[in-house]
């Protein structure tokens, strides 16, 4: 995945273009490490473009038991696959941090702006994990 901390204080998360492997627990762990490195102890709002992937039970368990890493998460879903995955993240995060599914990116950014911290990142940063 690609993690980019933008100047507006929102962390964007995309799939690496052309990457079509089945993700594993090691990928999930690496993703969390990347978020941690990029966040430097702060909780940013996340804008996540969910990929069309099947994630295993051990990955779901890892995500569900992980401490929150965002102030809020907007999940962009376009396909039925992404909707299923998105609903899993909605269910697991019920009481931890606000999570919402969006079909439209502008609406998602508007919603996330409520959860921005007053700290503005000095420059965009990106980290990749495969």
């Amino acid at each position: 995945m690609i993690f980019s901390l933008k100047e507006d204080g929102i962390m964007e998360i995309h799939k690496i273009p052309g990457w079509n492997d089945t993700p594993t627990l090691a990928h999930a762990q690496k993703d969390m490490e990347c978020i941690s490195v990029l966040s430097e102890g702060k909780m940013y709002p996340h804008l996540c473009y969910l990929p069309d992937v099947v994630i295993s039970r051990e990955m779901r368990e890892f995500y569900a038991s992980h401490e929150p890493v965002s102030a809020a998460t907007a999940l962009i879903v376009k396909s039925s696959f992404q909707r299923i995955l998105g609903n899993f993240f909605l269910g697991m995060n019920k009481v931890k941090v606000p999570v919402k599914l969006f079909g439209d990116e502008t609406e998602a950014r508007q919603w996330l702006s409520k959860y921005k911290t007053d700290v503005v990142s000095p420059r965009p940063l990106s980290v990749f994990a495969e």
Binding site: D52, V53, V54, R57, R60, K78, S79, S80, F81, Q82, R83, I84, F88
Partner: peptide, 20 residues
């Protein structure tokens, strides 16, 4: 994984439900 195939998405959801 066929993003636009609802049957595959249903199969994925049923798999997840059964595993849980």
């Amino acid at each position: 994984v066929h993003p636009d195939d609802p049957l595959e998405a249903i199969a994925y959801g049923v798999n997840m439900l059964s595993e849980e």
